[in-house]
Simulated assay, not measured.
Amino acid sequence: MRVKVTRNYQITIPAEIRRKVNLRLGDVVDVTYDEKTGEIRIKKILDSL
């Protein structure tokens, strides 16, 4: 699935993906970058801050 980066460097996680991971307002996600593959990964954190 492709999304566009806004001028503030934000992205919208598509509704289909949000439903699959049960992502809700206020949830915390971890964003990592894999140097080897060039992939950005977003993972929902189960324990909130």
Rank of each mutant, 00 (worst) to 15 (best):
M1N: 13
V3Q: 05
V3K: 04
V3Y: 03
K4W: 01
K4V: 12
V5H: 06
V5W: 04
V5I: 15
T6F: 04
T6H: 03
R7N: 15
N8V: 01
Y9E: 12
Q10F: 05
Q10P: 01
I11C: 08
I11E: 09
I11M: 08
I11Q: 07
T12E: 11
T12M: 09
I13M: 02
I13E: 01
P14M: 06
P14D: 07
A15D: 13
E16I: 09
R19V: 01
R19E: 11
K20L: 13
V21F: 13
V21G: 04
V21K: 04
V21A: 12
V21R: 03
L23E: 00
L23K: 01
L23G: 01
L23A: 06
R24G: 00
L25E: 11
G26F: 05
G26D: 09
D27C: 08
D27G: 03
V28I: 12
V29T: 12
D30L: 13
D30T: 10
Y33M: 08
Y33I: 11
Y33K: 05
Y33T: 02
Y33A: 05
D34P: 01
E35G: 11
E35H: 10
T37A: 08
T37C: 07
G38W: 02
G38Q: 05
E39L: 13
R41C: 06
I42H: 05
I42Y: 03
I42D: 03
I42M: 06
K43D: 00
K43F: 00
I45A: 15
I45H: 10
L46V: 14
D47Q: 09
D47F: 02
D47S: 09
S48W: 02
S48A: 07
S48M: 02
S48F: 02
L49D: 12
L49Q: 10
